[in-house]
Computed example of a mutant assay.
Amino acid sequence: MTPITMVEGRRISLSNLDKVIHPETGFTKGEVLHYYATVAKYLLPHIQDRPVSFLRYPDGPEGQQFFTKNPPPGTPEWVKTAPVPRSDDPSAEQIVVSDLPSLMWAANLVVEFHVPQWTAGSPGIANRLILDLDPGAPATVVECCAAAVWLRERLAADGLRACAKTSGSKGLHLSVPLEPVPSEQVSAYAKALAQEAERALPDLVVHRMAKALRPGKVFVDHSQNAAAKTTAAPYTLRARSRPTVSAPVSWSEVEGCRSPADLVFLADDILPRIERDGDLSAVLLDPADAHRLPGARP
Rank of each mutant, 00 (worst) to 15 (best):
I95F: 02
S98E: 06
S175H: 15
E143G: 02
S87W: 13
G171W: 04
C144I: 08
V97D: 00
I95H: 00
N127L: 01
V142K: 09
A192M: 11
Q195N: 12
A126Y: 05
K170W: 03
A194V: 07
I95S: 02
P177Y: 07
R161T: 13
D88C: 06
V181F: 11
E153V: 05
T166Q: 14
V141S: 08
E93I: 03
V181Y: 07
C145K: 06
K170Q: 12
A192F: 08
L172A: 14
P101E: 07
Q94N: 01
D89M: 03
A92F: 00
P177G: 05
E112L: 02
P123C: 04
C145A: 14
A147N: 05
L155Y: 05
A162D: 08
D99Q: 00
G121Y: 05
K165L: 15
F113P: 00
Q94C: 01
L172Q: 14
S169L: 13
V142W: 12
V141W: 03
A106C: 11
E93D: 02
I130W: 10
E196V: 05
A137N: 09
N108H: 00
P116V: 04
W105V: 05
V141L: 02
A188D: 15
L103R: 01
A162P: 12
I95M: 05
D158H: 15
P138R: 13
N127M: 02
N127Y: 07
A148F: 13
A106E: 01
D134S: 10
A147Y: 02
P85K: 08
D88H: 12
E184F: 12
Q195H: 11
T119S: 15
K165G: 03
H114F: 01
H114C: 05
R86W: 10
D134C: 09
E196T: 14
S167G: 14
V142T: 10
P90I: 09
S187Q: 14
A157H: 13
I130L: 14
A148Y: 12
L178Y: 14
P135N: 13
A164K: 06
S175V: 10
I95A: 01
G171A: 12
H173R: 04
V96A: 06
G168E: 09
R152F: 06
P138F: 10
C145N: 04
S122L: 09
R86H: 05
K170V: 03
L133I: 04
